Amino acid sequence: MSAFLATDGARQIARGFAGAFLLAAIWELSARGLDLPAYVLPSVSSILAGMARDAASLLEAARFTATEALAGYVLGCLVGMSGAVIVAMIPSARSVVLPLATAINSVPVVAYSPLVLLWFGVGMTSKIVMVAIAVSFTIFLSTIAGLDRVDRKSVDLIRSFGAGRFAVLWRLRLPTAFPLIIAGMRVSTVRSVIVAIVTEMLGAYGGLGWVIYQAVLQIDFVKVWAAIIVASAISLAFFGAISFVERRYIFWR
């Protein structure tokens, strides 16, 4: 099984690199062949040269953004899963908590950014809180959906052997819910980076969003694209890590 997963993962990575190379080749030929100005679409070679020139600042900004995204992601996952488990264990709370969570989640998370920046300042804390808000709702809803997937007959069977509510949760409901939970976690990886960058653009001391904002003000569109590519690399690495965990440990999916 592990050998198959490793081979399948290697094939997916190879296909990903091949697709990225093909896209880069088309991009380079289009930008040069059509003689597009940098503000429309700079060539890949000029972006790579800009990344090499600004490598130190881009790496520092990437570290800043990745830290915010990862910390907010972990916090959001803990809050979302904990809230879903509490609602599942106390059915009377569902009618109150679930509509409230759905209503809050229906508003674009960026709309909360001015308030969060006002409450927590423009430092790293506000970005972590924003990412946690975005991730927690996704994880909460996916965990609730997963916990509700359990077969009622299986619950009755395990209870007939003397299992209590916590035993049913640990031995049956959570293993059943893990495929949906991990799917929500996979989606949230990209969302966490996006939210961190957007919040940085509204107010920050560093990070890729701040770099993008400053580059736009300086009309340095090559640097804008360089920061976008670095952000995409962070998102892909994050997504790939969660996908690896899913393939490796959620084998019953």
Rank of each mutant, 00 (worst) to 15 (best):
L29I: 13
I242M: 14
V211M: 06
R15G: 07
L59S: 03
E60S: 07
T138S: 08
A66Q: 10
S243Y: 12
I47A: 03
V222K: 13
A132R: 04
L41T: 07
S92Q: 15
L172E: 02
A24V: 14
K127D: 04
G19Q: 07
V193E: 09
T143W: 12
W252T: 08
V87D: 01
D220G: 07
L5N: 15
K127H: 10
A52Y: 06
L117M: 10
T7G: 14
A177Y: 08
E246R: 13
D151V: 09
N105P: 04
I13P: 02
A61L: 08
G16Y: 03
I219F: 15
I139T: 11
G72V: 04
K127I: 04
Y249R: 06
G206H: 05
R63W: 10
I139Y: 02
D151S: 14
A25E: 05
R94A: 13
M124S: 13
Y39I: 03
L59D: 01
I250Y: 04
A61V: 06
V107I: 15
R247D: 07
A3P: 00
P42V: 04
L157M: 10
S95E: 15
L157R: 05
L157V: 08
A167Q: 11
R191V: 14
M89V: 09
I197Y: 12
T125C: 03
Y205R: 15
A145D: 11
A231L: 13
G16R: 05
E68W: 00
V79L: 15
V224D: 02
V129W: 00
G146D: 06
T125A: 15
I26H: 02
R173Y: 10
I86F: 11
G240P: 00
R11M: 14
S43V: 10
E68C: 03
S232I: 13
P37D: 02
R247Y: 09
V116L: 11
D220A: 11
S45M: 03
S192G: 11
A6P: 00
A183L: 08
E200G: 13
F178E: 10
I250K: 00
L217T: 06
G203Q: 06
P42H: 04
V116R: 05
I182V: 15
Q12P: 00
G19E: 02
V222I: 15
K223L: 15
P108C: 10
G164E: 04
L115Q: 04
I229C: 12
G83H: 06
V110K: 02
S160W: 00
F244N: 07
V198C: 01
R253D: 14
G50F: 05
L169E: 06
L34F: 14
A101E: 02
Q214I: 03
S82G: 15
V245W: 13
A88G: 07
G83D: 06
L202E: 03
L22G: 08
L59Q: 01
A237F: 13
L117Q: 09
R63M: 13
L36E: 00
S43R: 11
S126P: 08
A226N: 02
I13A: 14
L75F: 10
A111L: 06
S154Y: 08
K153C: 02
P179F: 12
I128L: 08
F140V: 03
R15Y: 07
L78E: 11
V87M: 03
A132S: 12
S160M: 09
L5G: 12
A167N: 04
R171V: 01
S30L: 13
I86L: 14
A233V: 08
S136V: 13
G76I: 09
L217A: 13
R53D: 12
F166D: 00
I128R: 04
V150S: 11
